[in-house]
């Protein structure tokens, strides 16, 4: 698997889009820091961007890479290589190169700014960790969609829809249900609803770490009680791991059963 990972990784690292993605974060980091002059504020702004953008890029890159490497895949399938190694190798190649762009692109400006002496380092690390999780999750989901759809246009359509649902529609539905069922105690429902969307989960995790739960209003207190504790943090991270592993397992399962 590592040989495949290596080839996919280098293939992507050499591509123009990885550089664009890396440079974008680099620029974003510098602009935010030197305009804001405030690490904590920069982290919040970054969070709002990352939480929407990382899933989008993961999804688009994931499907694009899968469809574009069809020839490479076919060539590998006739070689003495396990099927799961071929697909997981490609997946980790894409996910690693995207994560690297994110971590380096944001890490460099923040390190130069003097992150290591500031106490924002934990907030910032959490930001990068959730960003990496989101990359892993959405790239895996994109690979799942692509392997199940021969038709590229359909594959692209479904993955953009998936992103749109997770990033926008889900929140809308969530808010609407909160308003509709105002009279009922919705604490547990809100907690659960957050768990079932990796984007919401990441956002909540970071916001609570930043200690601005007041922004969340009524449910904020409940959330704080839950996410603020060690157990809450542990459960949320486990949930993110689950969100990562589930699509990876389905990808491996699907890869074993497909005709080429």
């Amino acid at each position: 698997m590592f040989k495949i990972l290596k080839y996919s990784f280098y293939d992507l690292i050499r591509s123009r889009w990885s550089y664009v993605y890396f440079l974008f974060y680099l620029l974003l980091g510098f602009v935010l820091l030197f305009l804001n002059n405030d690490l904590s504020k920069a982290v919040i702004t970054l969070m709002n961007i990352i939480i929407i953008l990382v899933p989008l890029i993961g999804t688009i890159f994931g499907v694009m890479y899968f469809y574009n490497s069809r020839e490479f895949t076919e060539l590998l399938l006739a070689q003495p290589i396990k099927r799961t190694s071929i697909f997981l190798g490609q997946y980790f190649g894409v996910a690693c190169s995207l994560s690297l762009s994110l971590i380096l692109g944001l890490g460099i400006p923040f390190a130069l700014y003097g992150l290591f002496e500031s106490n924002a380092i934990f907030d910032f690390s959490l930001l990068l960790v959730t960003g990496t999780f989101l990359t892993l999750i959405f790239t895996a989901m994109a690979f799942n969609i692509a392997i199940s759809n021969e038709n590229k246009i359909m594959g692209f359509g479904y993955s953009v829809l998936l992103w749109l649902f997770m990033a926008v529609i889900y929140d809308g539905l969530f808010l609407m249900s909160l308003i509709l069922f105002e009279e009922y105690p919705l604490d547990n429902f809100s907690l659960l609803a957050t768990m079932f969307n990796p984007i919401d989960l990441s956002r909540t995790l970071i916001l609570l770490k930043l200690d601005i739960s007041a922004l969340l209003g009524y449910t904020g207190a409940v959330f704080k009680k839950f996410f603020g504790t060690q157990l809450g943090l542990f459960i949320s991270i486990s949930m993110l791991c689950l969100w990562t592993l589930a699509p990876i397992f389905r990808l491996a399962w699907k890869a074993k059963r497909k005709d080429f």
Binding site: S69, E71, F72, E74, L75, A78, Q79, P80, I81, R83
Partner: peptide
């Protein structure tokens, strides 16, 4: 079935030569 090692002893020329173009 479900094996892959045996392909070490097979060479295969596909009908349509699809290669990574880049």
């Amino acid at each position: 079935k479900n094996q892959w090692k045996y392909r070490e002893n097979i060479e295969y020329l596909p009908q349509i030569a699809n290669f990574p173009g880049n």
